[in-house]
């Protein structure tokens, strides 16, 4: 039952049943708690991570099905060295409770990688799976536009 996976560039060997979702491997085994548990049924997006750059709900990906390198919020940037999108989140003071924001940021980062200058309709489409009970949507939208502009400059 030993499985190898790469998270944020670091290889890990974990000893868990094959059907344990990636979410719980990250949180309870590897200790990366930035990825959050919200619903367990892919209905809220709090657990969003990227596998080979694609945004996925880690509560729905079994350990044995992880098909590529995993990037979590911790791998995107750190407090001392934030990614452009995280800087935009801080500039717009997006977070309230903050619990869903790791997932929002991972989803938005995947959107920007594919669509560098998204329209509001494209943001609606990409982000509607990510629930925020605090209602931070207007600032998330603004932060995505700001991050897009900033990433275009560089």
């Amino acid at each position: 039952m030993s499985t190898q996976l790469t998270v944020n560039g670091t290889p890990h060997r974990v000893d868990l049943p094959d059907d344990v979702p990636l979410l719980w491997v990250l949180r309870d085994e590897i200790g990366l708690t930035g990825t959050k548990f919200g619903c367990g049924v892919a209905a809220c997006g709090a657990c969003t991570v990227q596998i080979d750059g694609e945004a996925v709900r880690s509560c729905q990906v079994s350990l044995s099905d992880v098909w590529g390198d995993v990037t979590t919020i911790e791998g995107l940037g750190t407090p001392d060295s934030m990614a452009a999108i995280q800087q935009a989140w801080v500039a717009h003071q997006v977070a309230q409770c903050g619990y869903c924001q790791s997932g929002q940021i991972m989803q938005a980062a995947a959107l920007l990688a594919e669509t560098p200058d998204p329209t509001d309709a494209e943001i609606d489409d990409a982000m509607q799976g990510n629930l925020c009970r605090c209602g931070t949507y207007p600032r998330i939208r603004a932060a995505i536009h700001t991050a897009a502009a900033k990433m275009k400059e560089t």
């Binding site: 919020i73 934030m82 977070a95």
Partner: peptide, 18 residues
């Protein structure tokens, strides 16, 4: 600027579940 904003934008803010 909120004192909790950087933590909540980098996955380093610690909630009860963390």
């Amino acid at each position: 600027p909120r004192v909790d904003m950087v933590g909540k934008s980098t996955g380093t803010a610690q909630f009860g579940i963390d």
